[in-house]
Write a protein that binds this DNA or RNA. Structure first.
Lengths: 208, 208
DNA sequence: GCGCACATTTGAACGACGTTCAATATAAAA
DNA sequence: TTTTATATTGAACGTCGTTCAAATGTGCGC
């Protein structure tokens, strides 16, 4: 039994229709619970009850809880990817584009707080992620390729991706610290302004 | 039984000498296990065995596992604070000082990877932290006050702390993403260069 | 309709976990 | 020594993810 990719478009035989429906119901139930109580509140028994199957039946839909969480992460990253895509297409000035992507990331995190948190807070028994999950993560950076190429046309691609990752990571850090409710809250608008400023400052310095 | 502050310097009566020694042994055993296997591998039974007491005896030393982890976090933050302090005193040029603090943070994270990770990865039953832990977190920012004041003398203090937090968060994000071994590794030296660059770029832009 | 092979679903049971608490051992006081 | 307070113990409890033999359901040739 190998690692099943998220969506196998191969055979839609009626046999697995039921399974797909169960899987979808499971995902939605899990997302509801995460949104309501955080990723730590995901319990096998609760989920089985939510979708009306016996406890053991969960393991016919997903391999285990780690698998469940990785699928959820995949969904969330899919939505995040769409949000970044939308952010990247509102303008075509490179700096403004990078700012829009950064703000789209922050807005997504804020409006999907628990699901976004679940991306990092899930503690898997097996520490190394399946390739399809790593690929989805790395795929998020692709939205920066365009503006980065126009911003630093003389630099090597390696250097560009390094800078892109640094920018992305910095914005991620600002979101993480800023949305941590255990510390003093900073107004969302002020945080957005900070993100805009940092991206602008970094771009100004790096423009070759 | 109220929340006990980390170090009560009040009475060092011989009565609690034993307890202090047990506490110290417990902390060291816990840190060893975290360093070796990560914070997820902390088990009450293992720790009790490590320091030679019965399982139930743990709850005479710490209130519960959450308490244990918060104490560990306090220790780690103490060391981190010292590392930042040391970084801040190698020069007195504001930008270089901020860069040094940022690099000290990154170096600490790299050289104390698992303990540093435990600061964020611990999942507590009770989500809100005790005041002494929040205070320790916020205290880490104080090393930036000096250089920030010299860098932006005309801005309000509120604005300065906001920028300081943004910078800190950005560096934190770079460390988090950079030290995540599940993604493609970036050489530590390159990451350090990125941190230096970002701090420099931000300071250049913000200098009033 | 009947019987048979196969797939799916079930829920009791298992081991690991954090936590509790009556029983026991140890130390202090009288 | 006897009595009282304190510290330690480890069996037991509830919760968790996971397993698996048994029960139930499904499709098919006759």
């Amino acid at each position: 039994m190998t690692d099943t990719p998220p969506a196998s478009a191969a055979k839609s035989s009626t046999i697995s229709r039921r399974r797909e429906a169960q899987f979808e119901a499971l995902m939605e139930a899990a997302e509801k619970r995460i949104v309501a109580e955080g990723v730590g509140a995901l319990k096998a028994r609760d989920l089985a009850g939510d979708i009306g199957i016996a406890l053991g039946g969960l393991y016919n839909i997903v391999a285990d809880m780690d698998d469940l969480m990785l699928r959820l992460a995949q969904r969330t990253m899919g939505r995040l990817d769409a949000a970044l895509e939308a952010g990247a297409t509102v303008t075509d000035e490179p700096v403004a584009q990078l700012q829009a992507i950064a703000l789209a990331y922050y807005d997504f995190a804020r409006q999907n707080l628990q699901l976004w948190r679940a991306l990092f807070e899930m503690r898997l028994k097996n520490p190394d992620l399946p390739e399809w999950n790593v690929a989805a993560q790395l795929g998020l950076f692709r939205h920066m390729n365009g503006p980065m190429a126009r911003l630093m046309p003389d630099k090597s691609e390696m250097e560009r991706t390094l800078v892109a990752r640094t920018l992305f990571a910095a914005v991620h850090g600002i979101a993480v610290i800023g949305l941590e409710e255990r510390l003093i809250a900073v107004p969302p608008q002020a945080l957005a302004a900070q993100i805009r400023w940092l991206v602008r400052a970094a771009c100004k310095d790096v423009a070759s």
